[in-house]
């Protein structure tokens, strides 16, 4: 944690360098489009994208609301399911052996492939979207928690037992805090899956949401608005990730202290 502090680049550099890179890329993109190297109907310029974003802001906001609701609901349930699965797998060896390969295999099934099935089974409402997000988000959480629980030094558990600690006390005092670090890296991945999962599920049917909006603007060849919504989606993912980071800081104050 406290290693490498000397060789780490300064905070300003950490912000300035990537900002400059993005700025340069945007300028090049703008120039390429303006000078006609790429036909404008295929690739809108950054300024066109921004103006599309601004014009459609109200419509986008209402669609985004739906998507966020699905994502947050799905993520919350996914985390809860992942947590319960991880605790059971940690507690009962048989459950671990039984489900570990199953969970891994389930992750090789592409989201896009099962989404239409979910629509078929559960209709066009909220349910199929939330289910899809639960299916994609619970995995990183469960896997990171299981390995987090297992990362505890067995000597630590021995020590707890000499104090007469119960299994529940060992879990709450030692295992859970030890797993937090890995849990949050899993949660960060899950958070990005959540928004993308919501959008994908909306492509396949629905009345509201950024995915629905995307399908509509694609059909009308409005590429500037297409780009605008893509940017919005990545912004939302980023925002959710930032929220996870914030939550991590609050939950793990010991991780962010200066070492001695």
């Amino acid at each position: 944690m406290a290693t490498n502090r000397l060789s780490e680049p300064s905070r300003t550099r950490q912000i300035a360098v990537p900002t400059a890179t993005v700025a340069i890329l945007l300028v090049v993109w703008e120039l390429v489009v303006r000078m006609g190297f790429v036909p404008n109907f295929l690739l809108p310029s950054p300024t066109q994208v921004v103006s599309a974003l601004v014009t459609d802001v109200q419509l986008l906001a209402s669609h985004a609301g739906t998507t966020i609701l699905e994502a947050v609901l799905g993520l919350a349930i996914g985390v809860a399911v992942g947590f319960v699965a991880a605790v059971l797998m940690d507690r009962f060896e048989t459950i671990y052996l039984a489900f570990d390969p199953l969970i891994t295999i389930s992750q090789t099934i592409p989201t896009v492939a099962i989404a239409p099935l979910l629509v078929l089974w559960f209709g066009y409402g909220l349910a199929p979207k939330v289910i899809l997000i639960v299916l994609t988000t619970f995995f990183p959480v469960a896997v990171s928690l299981v390995s987090g629980f297992r990362s505890v030094d067995p000597d630590m558990i021995d020590l707890m037992r000499t104090m007469g600690a119960s299994d529940l006390q060992i879990f709450t005092q030692v295992k859970l805090p030890a797993a937090l670090d890995q849990f949050f890296s899993g949660l960060r991945i899950s958070a990005t899956y959540a928004i993308v999962g919501a959008v994908i599920s909306e492509w396949l049917g629905g009345f509201n949401g950024l995915g629905v909006y995307m399908t509509r603007v694609r059909k009308s060849f409005a590429y500037d608005r297409m780009f605008a919504v893509i940017i919005l989606i990545s912004l939302l993912s980023l925002l959710l990730m930032k929220l996870v980071d914030l939550l991590e800081r609050v939950c793990m104050p010991w991780k962010h202290v200066e070492g001695k």
Partner: peptide, 18 residues
């Protein structure tokens, strides 16, 4: 276990506790 105090070879402080 539980009736004898034991100080293990490592300090085994829990990093998440003050």
């Amino acid at each position: 276990p539980g009736s004898v105090s034991y100080m293990l070879q490592k300090d085994l402080l829990i990093p998440s506790k003050r």
